[in-house]
């Protein structure tokens, strides 16, 4: 694992307390006439944010996504001084940093600057809109603090180059497409194919995302039993659904057990955020599945899924 040695101070909790910062942000979308509508936020177990409007009609691909609000700084001058984050004559900036691996893009949006003379309780309004044709999948958005203008009297331990990111005040992981950390089930229409099958295309499970591009459970709508799985109504449908899901999960888990990364997955080591490894580690540590032998895994999976179905969790 790479270690980074800091040559200068970074924004930390103690500074945040002194700064007395208050953040208020909303996600919103705009209609064609320019009217703004606030989106509700639902946070899943991985702290990813799912957004929706009242009638669930908002779709990023049609409307885009905005973020707006304000930053209130109780005591901005606390960041400036010979022993503080930066020197008195330096300038700090706030920016949104966004990063979307699935969109293959990232960027920053400078928002506002503060100096040692910025008054207490200053309110900084911020607003940015991501157009509908820009992003795909998920996006990380964070509010960052950076060195906008360096001091002329550089002091050892204080950042001396502009453009250095000195800290992060808040981060959101927003889901734009899909339902977040659910199983990557892909509906296909293949008259010759079975009801379901699993396909693997991963090579680095500790890095690659738990996503249909790398692991997919294909469910075939051309099959006669498709509707029983899609919308299980009778007890028989529900049993079939449990069979389908437990069978698919077992294949996925067995496949991963055979990789050289399994030990890391078990221990939750070296797994990137959102990776196949991280999601599997979550399953391992959250559910009572028995990984000691394939037959025991099969029994424990079915038992667990059946009890979830009964309690309405599935």
């Amino acid at each position: 694992m790479a270690n980074r040695i800091s040559m200068n101070k970074f924004f930390d909790e103690a500074m945040e307390e002194l700064l007395n910062v208050n953040l208020n942000f909303d996600f919103f979308y705009k209609e064609v006439d320019g009217s703004k509508y606030i989106l509700d936020q639902i946070v899943d177990h991985e702290f990813k944010i799912l957004l929706k409007n009242e009638d669930d009609s908002w779709d990023y691909a049609e409307k885009g996504l905005g973020i707006s609000g304000n930053i209130i700084l109780g005591n901005p001058s606390s960041l400036f001084g010979p022993t503080q984050l930066v020197a008195m004559d330096a300038e700090l900036g706030f920016a949104f940093e966004w990063m979307s691996k699935q969109s293959s893009q990232r960027g920053v949006i400078p928002l506002a600057a503060i100096t040692s003379t910025t008054p207490n309780n200053v309110v900084i309004p911020v607003d940015h809109y991501f157009p509908k044709d820009k992003l795909f999948g998920e996006v990380y958005i964070s509010l960052i603090l950076y060195l906008k203008k360096a001091s002329r009297n550089s002091v050892r331990g204080q950042a001396g180059y502009t453009g250095i990111i000195l800290g992060e005040l808040v981060e959101w992981n927003v889901i734009l497409d899909g339902a977040g950390s659910t199983f990557p089930i892909v509906i296909v229409d293949e008259p010759e194919a079975p009801l379901w099958y699993v396909d693997f295309n991963y090579s680095e499970p500790l890095i690659e995302p738990f996503d249909k591009e790398y692991i997919a459970i294909y469910l075939n709508k051309a099959h006669v039993a498709f509707s029983a799985i899609k919308t299980p109504k009778t007890k028989f449908d529900q049993s079939l659904y449990v069979e389908f899901l437990s069978g698919a999960l077992q294949i996925i888990l067995q496949n991963l057990i055979e990789t050289t990364d399994w030990q890391d997955i078990k221990e939750g080591k070296n797994c990137e955020e959102g990776s196949i490894g991280e999601v599997m580690h979550y399953f391992l540590t959250t559910f009572n599945w028995d990984f000691d032998a394939p037959e025991r895994l099969a029994v424990s999976l079915r038992k667990d899924l059946e009890s979830r179905l009964k309690s309405g969790e599935l």
């Binding site: 900036g93 920016a95 920053v108 400078p110 360096a150 180059y161 502009t162 453009g163 250095i164």
Partner: peptide
């Protein structure tokens, strides 16, 4: 270390 768009 640096974000090019934020450099002076």
């Amino acid at each position: 270390m640096t974000e090019p768009n934020l450099v002076e």
